[in-house]
Design a protein around this nucleic acid. Structure first.
Lengths: 187, 187
DNA sequence: GTCTATAAAGTGATAGAC
DNA sequence: GTCTATCACTTTATAGAC
C-alpha cells in the first residue's frame, strides 16, 4: 500500500490553517458578532462541526485569529525613536495585517478584542514613554498611539478620503516631523 | 374633573425621550448588535412593545439615537483654522457626546453607523481642505481627521493610558501646533 | 474522523388582550 | 393606549450517524 503524499496529520493541519485564514479574513471584514462559525466553515470549504472540534469555541478561534503581533523592541535616542515609530507606522499602512485588523474591527464591541488591543498598545506606549524626556511623556506617548491607530483605521477600516489612496511614504513623510515633535516635547 | 398636570401627549413624549436617552447610552456603551430592545426598554423603565411602537424598528431607533451633530461651519485663514480645529477637538474631549459615541462605537460593525461617521467626517474634511494651501491638502485634512478620531476614541472608547486622565486643555495645547503644521503644509 | 441533525437560548417583531 | 404572549428566525454548541 502506497503512503499518500499527504498524511492524516498533514491533511488535518492543512484544513486547520485554512479555517484560521478564513476566520481571520471574515473577522477582519465583519467583526466578531457578525461572523458566524457557519460562514467561516463555508469560506474554508469545511464544516461547522469541524471548526468547533478543532478550536473548541468561537471565542478560542477568535483569540487565535486576532492575536496582534507586537512590534520589535524599541530603543534608541529620541531622534531615532521618531524615525523608528514612523517607519513602523509605514509598515502597518503598506500591508493589511489581517489578524490585527480583526482585533481592531472588533475592539469596540467585543471585550476580549478590546483587551487585546489595549494591552498591545499599553506595552508599546510604556516602552516609548520611557525613552522620552519630560514630565508628560506618558501623555505624549499616548497621543502618538492615538495618532497611529487613527491613521491605521482611517486607511484600512474607515477608508477616509485622502488616506485611502496615498502611498505609505507620503503619509509617513508628513507625520514623522509631528511624531518627532511629540517625542521631543516641543510644543 | 381636574386636568392632570401632564397631558396624554406630554406623558407620551416624555417616555419617548426617556427611551431615546436610554438607547443612546446603551448603544454608546455596547454597540448596535449587543444592545437589545429589551435592555433599552428595561433601562428606560418601559416596555419592548412600546419601543417598537414608537420607533418602528431597532434600526430606526439607532438612526435617531446615533445622529452626529455636525460642527459649525468652518472658515477663516489657515492660522485661524488650526485654532478652530483644536478647540473643536477640545470640546469633543471635555464632554461625552453620547450620540456621537454611539455612532463611533458601532462604526466598524454596523454599516449604517459606518456610513454616518464617514459622511460626517467627509463633509468636514472637504471644508477644511478647501481652506488649506498645497497640492496634498486633501491628504493633510484626512490626517487631521484621523488624528481627531484617534484621540477621541483613545480617550472615550479605548481609554488609553495617558489620554484618559489628561485635561482637554493639556491635550489641545500639545496638539494645536501639530494641527497647525498640517494645515500650513510644513513638514 | 467527518459531517448531519438537533438542542437550547436569545433575538426582533407582531398580534391581540386588557 | 399600554403591555403580555408568542411567532419566526438565527445563533453556538452538542450528540450521534455514517
Amino acid at each position: 500500500m502506497k503512503r499518500p503524499v499527504t498524511s492524516r496529520a498533514e491533511q488535518r493541519q492543512r484544513t486547520e490553517t485554512r479555517i484560521l485564514t478564513a476566520a481571520r479574513r471574515l473577522f477582519a471584514e465583519n467583526g466578531y458578532d457578525r461572523t458566524t462559525i457557519r460562514a467561516i466553515a463555508a469560506t474554508a470549504g469545511s464544516d461547522p462541526g469541524l471548526v468547533m472540534r478543532y478550536f473548541g469555541s468561537k471565542e478560542k478561534l477568535f483569540a487565535q485569529a486576532a492575536t496582534i503581533r507586537a512590534d520589535g523592541p524599541i530603543t534608541g535616542s529620541p531622534e531615532q525613536l521618531a524615525e523608528l515609530l514612523a517607519t513602523a507606522l509605514g509598515e502597518k499602512l503598506a500591508d493589511e495585517p489581517a489578524a490585527a485588523l480583526a482585533a481592531l474591527r472588533s475592539m469596540f464591541t467585543h471585550p476580549e478584542a478590546g483587551l487585546e488591543v489595549r494591552t498591545a498598545m499599553s506595552g508599546q506606549q510604556q516602552q516609548v514613554a520611557s525613552l522620552m524626556p519630560g514630565e508628560d511623556a506618558v501623555l505624549r506617548a499616548g497621543l502618538i498611539g492615538a495618532l497611529t491607530v487613527g491613521v491605521v483605521i482611517g486607511r484600512h477600516l474607515l477608508q477616509l478620503d485622502g488616506l485611502r489612496d496615498a502611498s505609505p511614504e507620503e503619509i509617513t513623510a508628513l507625520l514623522q516631523p509631528l511624531i518627532s515633535d511629540l517625542v521631543q516635547g516641543r510644543s
